[in-house]
């Protein structure tokens, strides 16, 4: 199948007065059409940086990033769309106004696209709330609005940067199911960045594990849970789930963090 995103020997160094920070080192990967790619790694290993490069917000120091066959040279609305840690809804816009934000920025807000956004809101149970303001909605509903805002622009690729990390445990599990179902149904290609290993296993087709900074690809793993579970929640109960978990856990460079997190013995 044709690759939607290709990273070719990509490295990125942050430059600052106090010195250089190598964030990513020699990353090559492809994301196929309709695929759900998970990227896990210890915090600070360059996961957000990687997504920024796919979105065109950052340009690689060396190597090249290609989206839909074109080299990325800057942010370009419509190719990729983000879902971030926080829902980033604007308090001063209604739910509908928030959902159409991307279209409005790209100058693509027409009667037709507005109608399609409204259809999306309806599909995800938000129709009755579209004239309300974000503060009137619960955390899970707000993230769904953020998802509609992302999908309304019909991006070639969805970039999910720890989108559930700000939610409490139960809302997180519910929303993982919702978001997964919505994205699957829409057939969108996705990169999901997370440090939550079970989340990656439950939601993704393939997982890439990065090393500590500078991030390199340490392990690439196809997820096949041998189950016909219809959603991430059910997939967590698959017998193979634990094997994937321990495999990834061992590969993550958590040893140092773990030692320092343990209480000191005297």
């Amino acid at each position: 199948m044709e690759a939607v995103v290709t990273l070719n020997n990509v490295s990125l160094r942050y430059l600052a007065e106090s010195g250089e920070t190598p964030a990513l080192d020699n990353i090559s990967l492809q994301v196929k059409n309709g695929e759900f790619l998970g990227i896990v790694g210890p915090s600070g290993c360059g996961k957000s940086t990687l997504l920024s490069m796919v979105a065109g917000l950052l340009l690689p120091t060396t190597g090249s990033v290609t989206v839909c066959g074109e080299k990325v040279t800057g942010p370009e609305g419509g190719k990729s769309a983000y879902m971030l840690q926080e829902d980033c809804l604007l308090d001063w816009r209604t739910i509908e106004g928030n959902a159409t934000l991307g279209l409005e920025i790209m100058g693509r807000l027409t009667g037709e696209t507005r109608q399609r956004t409204n259809d999306l809101l309806k599909e995800y149970g938000l129709e009755n709330f579209k004239h309300l303001y974000p503060r009137q909605l619960s955390g899970g509903m707000r993230q769904r609005v953020a998802l509609v805002r992302t999908l309304a622009t019909e991006p070639a690729i969805c970039l999910l940067d720890e989108p559930f990390s700000a939610l409490d445990y139960t809302s997180r599990l519910t929303l993982q199911d919702d978001v997964w179902a919505i994205l699957r149904r829409a057939g969108v290609t996705c990169i999901l960045v997370t440090h939550d290993i079970p989340e990656a296993i439950a939601m993704c087709d393939r997982i890439i594990v990065l090393t500590k900074r500078p991030g390199r690809i340490k392990l690439e793993l196809n997820v096949d849970l041998n189950t016909d579970a219809p959603n991430p929640m059910k997939k967590r109960q698959a017998p193979d789930f634990r094997c994937y978990f321990s495999r990834i856990w061992e590969e993550m460079d958590l040893s140092v963090e773990r030692a320092s997190a343990l209480p000191q013995q005297t």
């Binding site: 920024s52 942010p75 920025i105």
Partner: peptide
């Protein structure tokens, strides 16, 4: 201003 909000609109090509 919240840098994430700016990141969001920049990614839409604002």
């Amino acid at each position: 201003i919240d840098p994430l909000k700016l990141k969001l609109v920049h990614s839409f090509g604002a």
